[in-house]
Design a protein around this nucleic acid. Structure first.
Lengths: 199, 199
DNA sequence: GCCGTTGTGAAACAATCGGTTCAGTACCGG
DNA sequence: CCGGTACTGAACCGATTGTTTCACAACGGC
């Protein structure tokens, strides 16, 4: 054996993630990354192959972090299913309003998913997992009688998930936290009002 | 006077718009634009100052086209206010599903609005106009008794508007027209169910 | 025909792009 | 101390970036 690794790739990925979040993929140069990650240009290519691969690592890292957030949110089952959905919605409000830059997954979905199958695949999988979680919670909530069963729980889950993107857009344009919170309340209210008979 | 203009800038802007729609701002080179617009490199800079200005023209052109779509949709008042909202929603479903590339306004909102005040301003204004239109329709629908009056019609209008972004995201990821249509139906149903007493 | 404008074509610009190369240094286990 | 690995620093690559320049052709009004 020889010299041990001096930097933890995972940390470096997070530093790169921040830059990609702010600037997007195409607007971020390798030079930007080198400076933000505080590693050598050669090390970047040694450890991450190339810019595109590093970007994919960032996407995966972000998805994993989101996963941890979700598990922290649902841990300790002191909340009902519907309450947990509310918590997730509130959490997403916080994510939208809390930081200046939009989530990398939404941002890069619009920038790259249409043209790059690899990016699309990563985003698709992590999105699908969130949607499945929501779907499960919807079904449990229906079973528990907290809300009427959905005709198409998958679509309702997608409906919730797709709202998040719109909040980001609205916040980018209007910078109004109260508007986001109000839209989130509208979503929560409409979930409670969805019932089998009418739809 | 002298030689008359040989090409109509408005047409050239539309050709440029198509490229920006597909590739976004940063991923589009001036060379791409020159080829798509079929004009000379010099003419581009003569007529549009620079790439960034041309892009802004594209955004404005797109907003104007959207405006015309809206007016065509509301012309001939054979529909009620709520029906008109439905028509707008259906129209946006068509826009989302009908073409491969997302709207330039949504796409460039995520790519540029956060960092470029000019872009943000153009997008903000055109978005606001759509939201105001929706708000007006909501109020008319409430007055006509088609739906209960909204506590915050502005927020409800923003809620509708922000849905469109999520549909684009979903379609980019899952390419499922039926999913978009179902989410649109969920939105329509939830509009009908919003009432003063409960929210 | 001539002036002034509109557009063309191509070359050239400096700057930056993503990516490679390589000699040299820091460090570890044996 | 030594062999092998991890990483640095910097130079360097060709290609491409957005933009400018300029000589010239096409055209309309006087």
């Amino acid at each position: 054996m020889a010299r041990t690794v001096a930097f933890i790739p995972r940390e470096k990925v997070k530093q790169a993630l921040r830059v990609f979040c702010r600037q997007g993929y195409h607007a971020t140069s390798v030079q930007d990354l080198v400076e933000a990650m505080q590693i050598n240009r050669s090390s970047l290519y040694n450890s991450f192959k190339d810019k595109h691969n590093l970007f994919l690592e960032c996407l995966r890292s972000y998805a994993e972090a989101g996963r941890e957030d979700y598990e922290a949110l649902t841990r300790g089952d002191s909340h009902s299913a519907l309450q947990t959905i509310d918590l997730i919605i509130d959490h997403m409000v916080g994510v939208t309003v809390g930081r200046a830059d939009p989530c990398i997954d939404i941002k890069s979905c619009f920038e790259l998913a249409g043209e790059n199958p690899e990016v699309q695949d990563v985003l698709k999988k992590s999105s699908m997992r969130t949607i499945m979680d929501l779907r499960y919670l919807l079904e449990v909530a229906a079973e528990a009688g907290e809300m009427a069963p959905q005709r198409d729980p998958q679509a309702t889950a997608s409906y919730i998930f797709s709202s998040f993107s719109g909040w980001h857009q609205s916040y980018l344009l209007f910078q109004d936290p109260h508007l986001i919170r109000t839209m989130a309340e509208l979503l929560k209210a409409s979930l409670r009002r969805m019932n089998e008979g009418r739809f």
